[in-house]
Computed example of a mutant assay.
Amino acid sequence: MTAQQHTHPLYFVGAGPGDPELITVKGRRLLDQADLVIYAGSLVNKALVEDLSCSCFDSAGMDLREIIDMMVQAHRDGKLVVRLHTGDPAIYGAIREQMQELDKQEIPYEVIPGVSSAFASAAALKKELTVPEVTQTVIFTRQAGRTPVPEPESLKNLARAQATMCIFLSVSLIDTVTRELVEGGYMPQTPVAIVEKASWPDQTIVRGTLENIGERIKESGIRKTAMIIVGPALDEASTKASKLYASDFSHEYRSKSL
Rank of each mutant, 00 (worst) to 15 (best):
Q4I: 09
Q5S: 04
H6P: 04
T7Y: 05
H8R: 10
G14F: 03
G14I: 06
G16E: 03
P17R: 00
G18M: 06
D19H: 09
P20Q: 01
I23T: 07
R28S: 12
R28A: 12
L30I: 05
L31F: 09
A34Q: 08
D35Y: 05
V37K: 04
I38D: 03
A40D: 09
L43P: 02
L43N: 00
K46H: 12
K46Q: 05
A47P: 05
A47E: 12
L48T: 02
D51V: 06
L52D: 03
L52N: 01
S53P: 04
S55D: 09
C56F: 03
S59I: 00
A60Y: 03
M62H: 04
D63K: 04
L64V: 03
E66F: 03
I68D: 01
I68Y: 01
M70I: 08
Q73T: 11
Q73P: 02
A74H: 01
R76S: 15
L80C: 05
L80N: 04
G87N: 02
G87R: 07
D88K: 01
D88V: 02
P89L: 04
P89T: 07
A90V: 06
G93H: 05
A94L: 04
I95A: 00
E101C: 11
L102M: 09
D103T: 10
I107N: 10
P108M: 06
Y109H: 03
I112H: 08
S116I: 12
S116H: 06
S116K: 05
F119D: 01
A120P: 06
S121A: 15
A122L: 15
A122I: 13
A124S: 15
K127T: 15
E128G: 12
T130D: 13
P132T: 10
T135M: 12
Q136I: 07
I139Y: 05
I139E: 02
F140P: 10
F140Q: 08
R142K: 14
A144N: 04
A144I: 02
G145D: 10
V149R: 14
P152C: 01
E153Q: 14
S154K: 11
N157H: 06
R160V: 07
R160T: 04
Q162D: 07
Q162L: 09
T164P: 06
M165F: 08
F168E: 00
V171S: 12
V171W: 07
L173E: 14
D175V: 06
V177S: 03
V177K: 06
V177Q: 07
T178I: 05
E180M: 14
G185L: 04
P191H: 07
V192Q: 08
A193H: 10
I194F: 02
V195Q: 07
V195F: 08
E196M: 13
K197T: 11
A198E: 10
D202A: 11
D202Q: 14
I205A: 08
R207F: 02
L210I: 06
E211V: 01
N212E: 04
N212D: 10
R216L: 15
E219M: 07
E219K: 13
E219L: 10
S220H: 09
S220L: 09
G221M: 11
I222D: 12
R223Q: 15
A226I: 00
I229R: 08
I229T: 11
G231S: 08
P232T: 14
P232R: 15
T239Q: 13
T239L: 09
K240L: 10
K243I: 12
K243R: 15
L244M: 13
L244C: 08
S247G: 09
S250Q: 08
E252A: 14
R254I: 01
K256M: 11
